[in-house]
Simulated scan of single mutants.
Amino acid sequence: MRARCLVVWLASSWWRQSLFICVTLGLALCAAHSPRARADGIFTLTSTSVRAGGTVQAAQVFDQNDCKGANRSPQLTWHNAPAGTRGFAVTMFDEDAPGRGWWHWAVAGIPASADSLPENASASGFLKKLGAVEARNDFDTDGYGGPCPPPGKPHRYIITVYALNSADLRLAQGRPALMFDHEIGTAAIGSARLVVNYGR
């Protein structure tokens, strides 16, 4: 009788250990393949030129008509891009503009090795040296066009960096920003953004 009990106890003990090992391995595999586990942390975007929730300074404001800014694209830094990132894109969009909104900036072809853009990367030629291309914004100019809303309530400007699964979206310099947005959307595997404000 004792021998039989011992056999039953050993068998149930082995079963419990096997179950524990299987559950542990299963949880480890799930964690390893979860989207969050593919990066060291959360994909984030920061800037020394603008602050999330803050007001855009004159350096980034448009410089034509009755807007008197320096029209310098903001400095941007991003961290913890998803695994599998093969390139980056950046956009700036005014969601409060009448109609469908207003495209201020769209850039594609930023290499996967990049993790930042200096201030004025658009006009300085920095993006061209990287091999990146810029869309025609809704001011009908290529590259960055800063905030210049009509007088009244401040507008919100969404600056987004996208991690892409492709190094080449086959976009050409000066194509419409809406086209850039579509192609970026088809290749995006992650994004991080800042929302800033500006009014006159």
Rank of each mutant, 00 (worst) to 15 (best):
A112Q: 15
R72K: 14
K153H: 12
S116P: 01
K68Q: 09
H33N: 03
N120R: 11
G99H: 05
G174V: 08
H33L: 05
I184V: 05
A187W: 00
L194R: 04
M179C: 00
D66I: 10
H79K: 05
W102Q: 10
L25S: 05
A32T: 04
V107S: 05
W78K: 04
G152K: 14
G199V: 07
R86G: 05
I184G: 03
F93P: 09
S73W: 09
P111W: 13
T46Y: 05
Q75H: 11
V50A: 00
M92F: 11
D168Q: 10
A172I: 02
N165K: 12
D40H: 01
F180V: 07
Y157N: 02
L171P: 03
A28M: 09
E119K: 08
A3R: 15
R4W: 11
V196E: 03
G146N: 08
F62G: 05
A108E: 11
C148M: 11
H33Y: 04
L25P: 01
F62T: 04
F20W: 10
T141V: 15
R86S: 12
A39G: 01
S124F: 09
R36D: 04
S18I: 01
S49L: 01
P98D: 11
A163L: 08
R100A: 14
A163I: 07
N137R: 04
Q17D: 11
A59Y: 03
Y162T: 12
S191D: 14
A172G: 05
L25G: 01
S113V: 15
W103Q: 11
D138S: 09
P149V: 12
N120C: 04
S49W: 00
S116K: 15
G41Q: 01
R86M: 13
V196D: 04
F93M: 14
T85E: 13
P82N: 01
D142P: 11
R16N: 10
D66R: 09
G125R: 12
Y162S: 14
L127F: 11
I184F: 05
A177W: 06
V50M: 04
A114K: 15
L164N: 06
S73G: 11
E95P: 03
L164Q: 04
G145D: 14
L117D: 14
L194V: 11
L76N: 03
S49M: 00
V133S: 07
W9Y: 02
S113H: 14
P154N: 08
G185N: 06
A121Y: 04
A163D: 06
D40T: 00
V90C: 13
T85R: 06
L25V: 15
A89V: 13
L164P: 03
Y162M: 09
P82S: 03
F43Q: 05
R170N: 13
S34C: 01
A167W: 02
A172S: 06
H182Q: 07
A59W: 00
R170W: 02
Q173T: 06
G109C: 07
E134A: 14
